[in-house]
Amino acid sequence: MKPTPSGKKVYLDIVHQLRDMIEHDGLKTGDKIPSERELSERLNVGRSSVREALRALELLGLIETRRGEGTFLRDFRDHQLVELLSTFILQDNDVRCDVLHTKQLLEKDCLRLVAENRDLHASGLATVAEMLENDYFLTEEEFLKAIIFLSKNRLLTKIWVILNQYHSNLTSSKPLSDHEFPKKLVEALAAGDQSKVIQIYEEMQKLSKLP
């Protein structure tokens, strides 16, 4: 096992190792990943730390746990919807703005859901806050993705993933260099203050447009 960087939680280091392992093993979406016990032995770490790392990956939407079956790499591809959206985009050059606007509407709805059910998402929000503190998120997109997956609304999340994929192809990802607004957003979500959440989110979007 790699030495854990000072000041960081063990499980965050394991998260990075797991992502490297998935890439090294050539695992694809839908593939089953090793069990907690196998990962613990392979990475030479405790099972509780592996469990926390898997939870973080699930929070980011990278894996899903199926009761009685195991843990699998997540696949949000919906070929019919992708094909429909592709056709729509190719037929209208001005639709990029519509994609961005719809994506932002979905993000606001997901944020409201998390704030509305803050008690259910308290541990997840705490994990996101800790990952922010340890500079885990490299881009604003990664941060928002973690929050959106917390909403537990599969349909909204599935549509967002597809829209975000198209939007990412059209624009470069914004580095998450300033953690002030993301931290405020997590705090507002934990407090269940929906109006404050949307206000902070909109301020983040304005900053994202700056060069």
Rank of each mutant, 00 (worst) to 15 (best):
M1L: 10
P3L: 12
P3C: 08
K8T: 14
V15L: 03
H16Y: 12
Q17E: 12
L18F: 03
D20K: 14
M21E: 13
E23M: 11
H24S: 14
H24V: 13
D25I: 09
G26Q: 04
G26F: 02
L27C: 04
L27P: 01
T29I: 11
P34T: 06
E36R: 13
E36W: 09
R37Y: 12
R37Q: 14
E38R: 10
E38W: 03
L39G: 00
S40Y: 04
S40G: 02
N44K: 11
G46F: 05
S48W: 10
S49M: 06
V50M: 00
V50A: 01
E52M: 10
L54H: 02
A56M: 04
L57F: 02
L59G: 01
L59P: 03
L59E: 03
L62M: 09
T65M: 05
R66M: 07
R67E: 08
G68A: 00
T71E: 03
T71Y: 00
L73E: 04
D78F: 08
H79A: 10
H79R: 11
L84F: 09
F88G: 04
Q91M: 11
D92T: 07
D94K: 12
C97H: 14
D98A: 11
V99Q: 05
L100A: 13
H101W: 13
T102E: 12
T102N: 10
K103E: 15
Q104E: 15
L105C: 09
E107H: 05
K108Y: 04
A115S: 01
E116C: 08
R118F: 06
D119I: 07
D119F: 08
D119R: 10
L120H: 09
A126L: 07
L132I: 04
E133L: 01
N134V: 08
D135K: 09
D135H: 11
D135F: 09
Y136S: 10
E141Q: 15
L144Y: 09
I148D: 07
F149T: 00
L155W: 13
W160N: 01
I162Q: 00
I162T: 06
Q165I: 07
Q165N: 13
L170G: 07
K174F: 08
L176E: 00
H179M: 12
H179R: 15
F181H: 14
L185E: 00
V186E: 02
E187M: 10
A188N: 05
A190M: 12
D193E: 14
Q199P: 04
Q199M: 15
I200P: 00
E202Y: 04
Q205A: 09
K209N: 14
L210T: 15
